[in-house]
Amino acid sequence: MFLLGLAGLLTRRNLIFTLMCVEVMLNASGLAFVAAGSRWGQVDGQVMFLFIVAMAAAEVSVGLAMVLQFHREHPTLDSDAGDEMRG
């Protein structure tokens, strides 16, 4: 799942998809925590998952706001359009 997200991140140019892929990666980590927690019979993993979900939400909210603004500046959602700074 983590790799799936990563692959999507690297291949998709649409910023919305990019954000989604990041979400996928985060969720993959969350899942990994839950699995690890269950291995040791601790609740810590699940606690971490909650943290992750909360943080992902915060991130997506900021992210979407920015993407919106980005779309206003560039009439596209192509992430490669944002390459004014390089070199």
């Binding site: 690297l10 390459d83 390089r86 070199g87």
Partner: peptide
């Protein structure tokens, strides 16, 4: 300098 393309996907692949 060529590595600094300005493309976010390339930067992410740097991480990967």
């Amino acid at each position: 300098q060529r590595t600094e393309t300005g493309h976010v996907r390339w930067y992410a692949s740097g991480l990967a």
